[in-house]
Nucleic acid binder design. Structure first.
Lengths: 354, 354
DNA sequence: CAAAGAACTGGAAGCGCTTCCAGTACCGTG
DNA sequence: CACGGTACTGGAAGCGCTTCCAGTTCTTTG
């Protein structure tokens, strides 16, 4: 093994040992036309011999392309980032980026300071695009996204605006599906624990719930808002039970909250699903750990990440993608079983703009 | 509002509008000595006026510093990345990096392809340092880390090697604490569900368990290996119950597995904690969602992330940090309560090299 | 067989920043 | 008042790459 000196080889050296010009070497390495086979081979040999890897900072400077994208998550509470949701998105994003030579920068921008930092990062041309995750209603990241001259893809839509490019799950359709399922079970006094209503997902899920009830001519008064957490779901459900002791089903807008609901219901002496049927949302890991296991609406989170990344890459390449809404599925498990029926699966209809 | 042309201002323009040379402007912006107050102010004004943000690619090229670090996670199974553990580490890392101007690159390097990709990233000088998370015994990332001429910090130690710089939790001490607690409860037939034993954490936890039993003169035959998952813990516990129906306590090396253990115990008709006491490890969210809630060993995961980042920054700055082992705590909850005692907390003694 | 492409080459000019260094201005000292 | 410092300054040389373009060689074609 020839132990090369600590200095990393440069393109110049590659060109030199290949006996060609730097320009030719560059072309050969980037396979950008006009390179004779002889040159190409010579360069390839030199690259292998020197174990050359191009310096990306230099390339970035020359091409004006950072070769990186950022995924920004703005959550007031770092605790919430622990939600497996984010991990799944990241897995999806990573999988897609692995096919490109873009690198993923992860920025958790919770505080004001974090946000200005994000802005600096973006404006310093360190990234070629931005993915934004899960914005609350008044998230300041919002405005930031507008100011940038970078492609921005949203994961989930912000509350009061339809961004140009986004990937979202069919929250509304999923919620409707869940609620229709409860109705089909014969439940008539169906309550819902919504998520934080400054979130589009929470609003859409409530909407789907209401639509299903409206169609069936049932009333939608049994509603209480929570914050997507188990504790929140627990408290909300206790509230519900106080005010509507007659309820016979609960649709919770997240599995965490559904788990809390389960706890509250058990505590109150009600049996699930016999007295009260419960359906959650997300197909989070916790949904399989409760007893009974939670029926839930599954959203393809990993795919959401994938599609976000894919869309961003498309934008970076200068093409024009179209927004995407991914279908959701109902998974029926123990918490809403009529008898000993097997687990079923239903597809939510895609209702983008309707 | 003066709408500047799409082109972003360069240092040259800043210098020009400030009426100084580019060199002076650079010095002013980086506050690297030898700048008169007048110059500084002129430059600051110009920066503000033009809304200038330095181009990081250019700076990276000039300074030979990427201004980024990578956090690499190698998990064969992307499912496992969903473990809140990783999210917590990331939160810690991010929090620490927010104090610097280093940006976090996240690389999920599961496949062979992902690993070569990681290597390319690292060798192309896009990052100034590397954090490696949770390596299994024969993880190829290992060898990679050696080849690099970058500072590398390990989060958790790999199995058969003591890396130069690492941050780890006191797995052994925590396990001992948990086991001693079970012994103090009067349990004598204490089983353990270990984690994957090609992992240092799993080995250390088993070791702590064995030490505690040895000290008490109890036997350590009730051992079965699982894979850190709920399903694995469930299966392992069923196994245990088959072979050792007399067991009166279970120490599971993760909360996920402890949750599985709980399920298996319930299924077998045993009461927890009356018949069998259970203690987990991690203080994962799930530990509060089971009934009864899980006693567990808490490790400061967020702090682990913080310290990893801090250590890496120290290394990048050319200083020499020392490895760190973070203390773990025992949290006693319902699954190992003797009577109606309140939740207690114990500190594990730090036993780095003993 | 001359002229016109086609295919390829390498010199040179950047990309936007940092930093070395020679130079200028200005200070306090003997 | 000449002197050696000190405090700044800006010109210029990179950092390692891409890419334009003028030039060369070789192949076609009328």
């Amino acid at each position: 093994m020839s132990t090369p000196p600590k200095r990393r080889p440069t393109l110049d050296e590659v060109a030199q040992t290949a006996g060609v010009s730097r320009a030719a070497a560059s072309r050969a390495i980037n396979s950008s036309g006009n390179v004779s086979p002889a040159t190409r081979q010579a360069v390839e040999r030199a690259v292998r011999e020197l174990d050359y890897v191009p310096n990306r900072s230099a390339r970035a400077l020359a091409t004006q392309q950072a070769g990186a994208v950022v995924l920004a998550v703005s959550h007031h509470d770092p605790e919430l980032f622990a939600d497996p949701f984010f991990a799944q998105v990241i897995v999806g994003v990573s999988a897609e980026l692995e096919r490109t030579d873009l690198v993923l920068m992860l920025v958790l921008a919770a505080s004001e300071h974090g946000r200005t930092r994000l802005e600096r990062i973006l404006r310093s041309r360190r990234a070629d695009g931005l993915m934004l995750l899960s914005l609350h209603g008044d998230d300041p990241l919002h405005r930031l996204a507008g100011k940038l001259d970078l492609p921005v893809v949203y994961g989930g839509r912000p509350l009061d605006a339809e961004p140009q490019w986004y990937v979202d799950a069919d929250n509304r359709g999923g919620a409707r599906l869940a609620t229709e399922h409860l109705i089909a079970l014969g439940r008539r006094r169906i309550a819902t624990v919504t998520g934080l209503l400054d979130t589009d997902a929470a609003v859409q899920r409530r909407r789907g719930y209401r639509e299903a009830l409206a169609v069936a001519g049932l009333d939608t008064t049994r509603t209480v808002e929570a914050d997507f957490t188990e504790a929140g779901g627990y408290a909300a459900t206790r509230h519900l039970l106080d005010r509507h002791p007659d309820l016979d089903a609960v649709f919770a807008a997240s599995d965490n909250m559904a788990a809390g609901a389960l706890r509250a219901l058990h505590e109150s002496g009600r049996r699930v699903p016999e007295d009260v049927a419960v359906v959650g949302f997300d197909d989070a890991p916790v949904s399989r750990l409760t007893t009974p296991q939670l029926s839930t609406v599954q959203q393809p989170i990993r795919q959401l990440g994938r599609e976000m990344a894919r869309m961003l890459v498309t934008l970076i390449e200068g093409e024009e993608p179209t927004p995407l809404i991914l279908p959701t599925k109902l998974l029926v498990r123990g918490s809403s079983l009529p008898a000993h029926a097997p687990t079923r699966t239903l597809d939510a209809t895609d209702v983008p703009q309707a």
